[in-house]
Deep mutational scan, measured.
Amino acid sequence: LDMDCLPYGWEEAYTADGIKYFINHVTQTTSWIHPVMSVLNLSRSE
């Protein structure tokens, strides 16, 4: 699993305190969880 590779439309950013988060420019949303990890967690719960 390549954690450096973000899906299309996603960008890694940091808060003023240096905390990493992710921006989805396609849906105009943000997430604290890496988008690949959130997809993996969803697929495990099914």
Rank of each mutant, 00 (worst) to 15 (best):
H25R: 14
S43I: 07
W32K: 07
L1F: 11
G9T: 02
Q28S: 10
A16W: 01
L1P: 09
L40S: 14
Q28C: 07
H25D: 00
L42C: 13
L42T: 13
Y14T: 08
V36T: 15
A16M: 08
D17C: 02
D17M: 01
T27A: 08
V36R: 15
S31E: 05
L40G: 14
T29M: 03
M37G: 13
I23E: 00
R44F: 01
W32N: 10
L6W: 01
H34W: 00
A13D: 00
W10E: 08
L40D: 09
H25E: 08
V39Y: 02
L40V: 10
K20C: 04
L6Q: 03
G9I: 09
V39I: 07
G18F: 03
W32V: 04
E46K: 09
W10I: 07
T30L: 08
Y8R: 10
L42D: 13
E46T: 11
E11P: 04
S43L: 05
N41A: 10
T15Q: 05
S43C: 08
N24Y: 06
L42I: 10
A16T: 09
W32Q: 02
Y21W: 06
S45C: 09
S45A: 11
E46F: 10
K20G: 02
C5H: 12
S31R: 03
H25M: 00
T29P: 00
D17R: 05
G18H: 02
G9S: 06
I23H: 02
R44H: 10
S38G: 14
V36G: 15
L42R: 14
N41M: 09
Y21V: 00
P7W: 06
L1Q: 15
R44I: 00
I19W: 07
V26Y: 13
I33K: 10
T27L: 15
T29I: 14
S43K: 02
I33L: 11
R44G: 15
T29Q: 00
H34I: 05
V26A: 13
W32L: 08
E46H: 06
W32Y: 10
L1S: 15
L1Y: 11
H25Y: 00
V39E: 14
D2H: 15
S31W: 01
T27P: 04
T30F: 00
E12I: 10
Y8W: 10
T29H: 02
E11Q: 09
V26R: 12
P7C: 08
W10K: 04
T15Y: 06
V26M: 10
Y8M: 10
V39T: 13
P35L: 01
P35F: 01
L40E: 14
A13K: 08
V36E: 15
C5S: 14
A13T: 08
G18T: 00
F22S: 02
T15C: 00
H34E: 03
V26G: 13
I33W: 04
V36L: 13
D4W: 08
R44N: 12
S43W: 00
D2Q: 09
D2E: 11
W32A: 04
M37D: 15
S45E: 13
T30Y: 00
M3P: 13
V36W: 09
L42V: 13
L1K: 15
Y8T: 12
V26N: 08
Y21Q: 07
V36S: 15
I19Q: 15
S43R: 11
V36D: 14
T27R: 11
D17N: 07
S38C: 07
D17Y: 01
F22V: 01
S31M: 00
D17S: 06
E12N: 04
Y8F: 11
L40Q: 13
W32M: 11
Y21H: 00
R44C: 13
D2G: 10
G9E: 11
A16S: 13
T29K: 04
V36I: 07
D2W: 03
D4R: 07
G9D: 07
V26H: 14
M3T: 15
F22R: 02
P35H: 03
P35Q: 05
G9A: 03
D2P: 00
Q28A: 08
F22P: 01
E46G: 14
R44Q: 12
Y14A: 06
S38V: 08
N41R: 08
S43T: 11
F22L: 02
W10A: 06
Y14I: 02
H34S: 09
P35C: 00
A13V: 05
D4P: 08
E11T: 04
S45K: 11
N24V: 04
G18S: 05
S38T: 04
C5G: 12
Q28I: 06
D2Y: 07
A13S: 08
H25S: 13
S38P: 12
W32T: 02
K20A: 05
Q28F: 09
E11R: 08
D4K: 07
E11L: 04
E12F: 03
C5M: 11
D4V: 04
I33Q: 13
I33C: 13
R44W: 08
N41D: 14
I33Y: 11
T15R: 05
E11H: 06
S45I: 13
Q28H: 11
N24R: 02
I33N: 11
E12T: 08
T27D: 12
I33G: 11
V39C: 12
F22Q: 03
V26T: 14
L6S: 03
E11V: 08
I19V: 13
Y14V: 09
L1V: 13
S45N: 12
F22A: 00
I19K: 15
G18P: 02
H25T: 13
T30R: 05
S31I: 06
M37H: 11
N41H: 06
S43P: 12
E11W: 05
V39P: 15
I23P: 09
L1N: 12
M3C: 14
P7E: 05
R44P: 13
I23W: 03
L40W: 12
A16D: 13
Y14Q: 10
L42W: 10
V26L: 08
T15I: 04
L42E: 14
T29D: 04
T15D: 08
E12W: 04
L6T: 04
S43M: 04
M3Y: 09
A13N: 04
G18Q: 06
Y8L: 10
Y21M: 00
I19L: 14
P7K: 06
E12S: 07
T15M: 03
S43H: 13
S45F: 04
F22C: 06
S45T: 12
P7N: 05
L1C: 00
V39A: 12
Q28M: 13
D4T: 08
P35E: 06
F22H: 05
R44K: 11
V36H: 14
E12R: 03
T15P: 08
I19F: 10
A13Y: 01
S43Q: 04
E12M: 10
L42G: 14
D2F: 02
